[in-house]
């Protein structure tokens, strides 16, 4: 077993462990912090894939924005659920069974495919290429632009919904 494999296994173990802590934790703030940890470990997984840029984006966008947003929401709504009451609903054991079945199914699906054994060797210059891909008309400029529409729409929608109640004007 090579060093990189061992590193991967450690990272994976940490990822999965922190993910489990996210879904099982009683204290929501802690869950949120475990989420940050998970996302961080995923960024580490990206580095094992030589995708440094993705790792950075993961940290900046996911941790820097989404996770923090969630943390805020948790803090804001903190007083409605205390830590002593159960954090799972009555069907949690069904959820276990179904998730396991789905997992087995996914593994079964993937197992039949002949996958490339090893990664391609040369991955230089990818950041420039990625930048180009996003602005070049014969690549992905359109998704890039539509994504901005999506983000603005989400922003407007989010603000509009989260506004405090007002009397009909």
């Amino acid at each position: 077993m090579s060093g990189s494999q061992i590193a991967f296994l450690i990272i994976s173990a940490l990822t999965v462990y922190s993910a489990l802590m996210v879904v099982t934790g009683r204290n929501l703030v802690r869950s949120a912090l475990w989420l940050v940890m998970t996302l961080f470990m995923v960024a580490a997984v990206f580095t094992t894939l030589d995708a440094g840029f993705m790792a950075v984006v993961q940290i900046v966008v996911y941790i820097g924005a989404i996770a923090i947003l969630i943390l805020f929401a948790v803090m804001l709504t903190r007083k409605v659920m205390n830590d002593t009451e159960p954090q799972t609903n009555d069907n949690w054991w069904m959820a276990v069974i179904v998730s396991v079945v789905i997992f087995v199914g996914m593994v079964f699906m993937v197992s039949g495919v002949s996958l490339p054994a090893r990664p391609a060797s040369d991955v230089s210059n990818q950041i420039v290429d990625l930048g180009n891909a996003f602005v070049s008309p014969n690549q992905f400029i359109l998704p890039f632009e539509v994504a901005s529409v999506l983000l603005i729409a989400a922003l407007i929608g989010g603000i509009a919904i989260a506004m405090p109640r007002e009397e009909e004007g």
């Binding site: 609903n89 009555d90 069907n91 069904m94 959820a95 179904v98 079945v101 789905i102 199914g105 079964f108």
Partner: peptide, 27 residues
């Protein structure tokens, strides 16, 4: 006694169970 709906997670559960069943069937 728990005959309830209107609960989104129940709906999700039905759906996921259906997916699992379809998957098992095809398997």
């Amino acid at each position: 006694k728990y005959i309830q709906t209107g609960r989104i997670q129940n709906y999700l559960m039905y759906t996921v169970i259906a997916i699992a069943l379809i998957g098992v069937l095809f398997g």
